[in-house]
């Protein structure tokens, strides 16, 4: 009797602790989001989104930084998605179980642990200087792609692993090659997971400052980029500059910029999650 009573108390305490942790996370996320919205909303206007910064960046808008961040993120996706998904496919579907594969996996998880400023240095050395791309969208996108690759590879591998091997067997037994099995059966079924994971990785990239500090970002530039070799303003770096380099910190604009960044990233994540849940309803096992 006593033992059961004690077990029940322990159970109650466990529920309370885990529940409190969950509540704390929700509260923190909510607070963060609400705070950014409350502080940033006053700055948001049509002009803010479509004008260039004026008066030592204390007025005007942030269009160049929006465009710069968009360009960098699209560029990152262009490099990281095909390479990351292909590598994930290789690791999940083709790689022989053995030393060399374990080594590749180890390398990937180490890549994910490298601080982003180190990616910045690496990008500076390899893309900006050695490949002579200069400080440019291209160099920045390549640097961010390196940073994002581990996330996309891992997401792809995980998503492919979720697909029951029954389906692969069925396809192979019908006289389909491995590759046909992958692209007709396995990839479509894994697409929701791959997309969600990749968007998460790209969202992170969009908000990074350190990797683009030496490879793409400039302090101030009114002109829109005219090629991939142009350097650009970007949202996170703009926030940093406004907060540290501009006299009389323009709080409105700082939080407004943060809101644009967070809002854009959130909108894309929500769109991906919605698409995924629609797919889920169609495909289940």
């Amino acid at each position: 009797m006593n033992r059961i009573k004690r077990a029940r108390t322990v159970q109650t305490v466990a529920v309370a602790i885990t529940g409190a942790a969950a509540a704390f996370i929700i509260a923190a996320a909510l607070f963060l989001f609400v705070y950014i919205v409350v502080r940033g909303a006053p700055a948001i206007s049509w002009e803010f989104l479509t004008d260039v910064p004026r008066k030592q960046m204390k007025e005007g808008g942030i269009l160049p930084a929006i465009v710069g961040t968009l360009a960098l993120t699209l560029g990152t996706a262009a490099f990281a998605l095909p390479i990351g998904v292909a590598a994930g496919i290789y690791l999940s579907e083709y790689a022989p179980r053995g030393r060399s594969t374990r080594l590749i996996r180890l390398a990937i998880s180490n890549m994910a642990g490298v601080p982003s400023i180190v990616y910045g240095l690496f990008g500076l050395a390899l893309f900006v200087i050695l490949l002579d791309l200069g400080k440019s969208i291209l160099a920045g996108a390549l640097t961010l792609a390196c940073l994002t690759l581990p996330v996309i590879i891992t997401a792809t591998e995980e998503a492919l692993r979720q697909i029951p091997s029954d389906l692969r067997q069925a396809s192979l037994a019908l006289g389909a090659t491995r590759w046909r099995t992958i692209y007709r059966i396995v990839l479509p079924a894994a697409a929701p997971g791959i997309v969600t994971g990749s968007i998460l990785g790209l969202s992170r990239a969009a908000g990074e400052t350190a990797p683009i500090l030496f490879t793409a970002a400039v302090y101030y530039k009114r002109q829109m980029p005219d090629s991939v070799f142009a350097d650009v303003m970007v949202l996170p770096y703009h926030i940093f500059i406004l907060a540290t380099q501009v006299t009389g910190r323009p709080d409105d604009i700082i939080w407004g910029t943060a809101l644009v960044l967070v809002g854009g990233v959130t909108a894309i994540s929500v769109a991906a999650a919605t698409w995924r849940s629609i797919q889920r309803r169609k495909v289940r096992w």
Partner: peptide
């Protein structure tokens, strides 16, 4: 691959592809 077009297999657990009946059979 050619052999498997001549020798088909049905598995222990039903394993239809996540697609329509038609597309399953036409695969």
């Amino acid at each position: 691959v050619e052999l498997r077009t001549k020798v088909g297999q049905v598995f222990q657990k039903p394993n239809p592809f996540p697609m329509t009946i038609y597309d399953n059979v036409a695969y």
